[in-house]
């Protein structure tokens, strides 16, 4: 099953490659991976979406934790958590009908049209993976998708729980 792992690690050169290397070395699956420095610039926060049964997940968590650069890892899947992903999608907007439809669908999903070209609209949408998939399906029914980019998910536990040092 799909799991979301949140990782706090040293913001050091090579840290990312150690994580990625570990996943390929041990034949673990990566569905998506996002990483960036945190408010404390010496730390990086990573979110990995992965798949595997309980036994595989236990190994993933332990193996990642064993990396020297990793400070903390938690599996937030089973907790109350927030999961967000950013989508940028460029769609064909050649005529009034498609322009209207794209605008309408975007509004329904609470996205934003953030750029326009002569014949295209670029739309931004955030949400969990399901919402983004539904949005893409809706767009595909009305117009042609020219290009799309997804950030992969970032996640955080709800409430007072925090992943910090």
């Amino acid at each position: 099953m799909r799991r979301i792992l949140a990782i706090l690690m040293e913001n050091e050169p090579g840290s990312l490659s150690r994580i990625v290397g570990l996943f390929s070395q041990r034949a673990f699956n990566i569905e998506s991976l996002t990483v960036a420095p945190t408010d404390d610039n010496s730390l990086s926060r990573m979110t990995i979406a992965t798949k595997g049964d309980d036994k595989v997940l236990e190994q993933i968590v332990k193996q990642v934790n064993k990396l020297i650069d990793v400070i903390k890892i938690t599996d937030i899947t089973d907790r109350k958590h927030i999961e967000r992903e950013l989508l940028l999608v460029k769609v064909s907007a050649m005529n009034d009908k498609s322009r209207t439809e794209v605008k309408r669908i975007t509004d329904i999903f609470r996205g934003n049209i953030i750029d326009i070209g002569k014949q295209v609209y670029t739309v931004q949408l955030t949400g969990d993976a399901d919402k983004l998939n539904a949005f893409i399906n809706a767009l595909q029914n009305e117009t042609e998708i020219i290009e799309s980019a997804r950030s992969g998910c970032v996640g955080m536990a709800r409430g007072d729980q925090a992943l910090r040092i």
Binding site: P13, G21, Q25, I68
Partner: peptide, 14 residues
């Protein structure tokens, strides 16, 4: 060499 040895070390430094 850091890349070559990544899967077979405990850690590495540059």
């Amino acid at each position: 060499i850091v890349g070559c040895t990544r899967p077979i070390i405990k850690h590495s430094f540059n």
